[in-house]
Design a binder for these strands. Structure first.
Lengths: 209, 209
DNA sequence: CTTATTATGAGACATGAGTCTCACCATGTC
DNA sequence: GACATGGTGAGACTCATGTCTCATAATAAG
């Protein structure tokens, strides 16, 4: 039982650090390692024993109200309108991104600094938005031809997730409110354009089943 | 002639700092302020007199095959078609982003690590794409009502610059070729949607002159 | 009881960012 | 020649990151 106790000790220390980091970030701060350590009542040196850098500590801190899975997001949504559904998906992801802005910024920064490759097979990016977009379009999938569907999926991805937040906040300096208005209009316009393109291509019967 | 001399002095010092920073970055390094200053044979204190932070210095360092100014890009382009012009602007910026991918990734990463907010009105990001987008839409400006124009500008910005490259490369894992196809389709679709929205709002006379 | 082992705390240390002050010097003017 | 001005260099200073060493507590094993 000896090692089990040690393991528990280590596990608790690690968890305390992560939850302290999440707590501070949730409070709108972008905490230093010293602040996180103090919040967790752990010495700074120990914090560095568990996490090699501030960025790793931040990146591993649990996200608030994690992204809903496509299943639970569309569980009792009878709608098949792709516009409505894509808007709903974007709204959910937007809320999550807003709630975790500092942490997501750091995760993105970290993924950029690497040589653009993955390391040790661990993907630096996990693609949250792809599944959401597909789930949103799924009931109307037959209304798009294949090439249009691919274009649409990829185009919509530009308005989901952290990068979209960065464009809106840092580049355009929009308020969260305006940012959502832009994204909402753009994704609906793209869906309509996709439907239009498919209609034009096949004369109303875009895809054989 | 006194002030002219002073101005030249300042201009040369500033230019030396910027070219030193570009030189070091082209050599693959991620230089410190002290290194840039030494390379430019200028004291570190003076470097801070010209640039409030390392980020700003890096951000203003000249890029390879810098972005064409809107003027020279559209100098002998008689077209007033916003679709054609926005495509042209995107193509130019896309080429520049491709040619400077590592440097731009680093600049984006650095800008993300900051306390997320600008301080004292000094933008962390310099907005290259804004001027290009406005210049592309300018001849057709009268065909958009004001609110649609703002929506369109902001939406188009999502397909310009480094963030768009990151989405396409890291998230969607598209080839540069496919990435361009997606962006081209999307920006044209958005322009058309903007025209349509303005038409719908005002019945064909979207904006009084 | 004695002795390793292990997590931790405390603190020194090096480096880079960013700020600030003081001295220097070349250029202007009186 | 005396003097103000504006760009510059040198260096001290604060703070945060990240590394390191040493001491101390508690637990594990002899």
């Amino acid at each position: 039982m000896s090692e089990a106790w040690r393991a528990n000790q280590r596990h608790r220390t690690r968890k305390d650090l992560l939850s302290a980091a999440a707590r501070l970030m949730k409070a709108g701060r972008c905490p230093t390692v010293a602040e996180v350590a103090e919040e967790a009542r752990i010495s700074r040196a120990t914090a560095y024993r568990y996490f090699p850098s501030r960025e790793v500590l931040m990146a591993e801190a649990p996200l608030d109200g994690a992204v809903p899975t496509p299943e639970e997001l569309f569980a009792q949504d009878p709608s098949t309108d792709p516009e409505e559904r894509i808007e709903r998906a974007e709204k959910a992801l937007h809320a999550m991104v807003q709630a975790n802005e500092p942490q997501l910024r750091m995760m993105l920064a970290r993924s950029l600094e690497l040589p653009a490759r993955q390391r040790d097979g661990i993907p630096v990016r996990q693609n949250r938005r792809g599944a959401l977009i597909e789930a949103a379009l799924q009931p109307a999938r037959h209304r798009f031809d294949d090439s249009t569907y691919e274009l649409l999926r990829a185009a919509l991805a530009h308005f989901f997730g952290t990068e979209s937040m960065v464009v809106a906040t840092d580049v355009l300096q929009l308020s969260p409110r305006d940012a959502r208005a832009v994204k909402s209009w753009a994704i609906r316009a793209l869906v309509r354009a996709g439907l239009e393109r498919s209609r034009g291509k096949t004369g109303g019967r875009p895809r054989r089943r």
